[in-house]
Amino acid sequence: MTDVITLTGIGRTFAADPPVIALESVDLSVRRGDYLSIVGPSGSGKSTLLNVLGLLDVPDTGRYELEGEETTVLGDAARTALRGARIGFVFQSFHLLAHRDVTENVMLGGLYTSAARKGRRERAHAALERVGLSHRRDFRPTHLSGGERQRVAIARALAGNPALLLCDEPTGNLDSANTAAVLDLFDELRADGTTLIVITHDETVSGRAGRRVRITDGYLTQEPL
């Protein structure tokens, strides 16, 4: 099984008057090591797709297999555990805890997983090493640049050794220099075999991906680079 993600006929409708169709029969497969970007204007269903992919929301119809495991039939507890263990999130606004140092923030990544408590600090340091921030491990996030903060967030996502890195507008709060640094990091991670999904509306970001899909009014279309 080389597919990390297989979406088949995913649909999600929100109860309203009239009902809002956020996703309509979405099919998507992501293979291990893929670098996929999802683009689309706001209101197109990007957030809903992110929530579904991140196991934060359950689709109304269709099947979602993560590493071959059907997730739409899982209960809340099992879905939460799967999310914590197999998906690393990277957010636009980093969501670092301002009063904890960089290492502690990265250690949060393994807090709720079944990973051994012992060695958590070492794994956090290793993740910081991967994003090139070993020299900042004792800093507070408030003393870091935006790019460094996002790299800390990426290290936190990597600390759990996830199957997939799910990035939501990862460069939305960054200037061009920091954006370039983060994108370079994504290239390095991909070269190491990390599976990346980047949701963005930024053409330069999506242009660096290996594959691009566009979502419009809930429909997903493959798009050539």
Binding site: G54, T80, H95, L111, Y112, G160
Partner: peptide, 16 residues
């Protein structure tokens, strides 16, 4: 709220 969301994304259950 954001921290709670983050913790949930990192695998925290409601009871945690």
């Amino acid at each position: 709220t954001a921290e709670i969301g983050l913790r949930r994304a990192l695998g925290a259950r409601r009871r945690h």
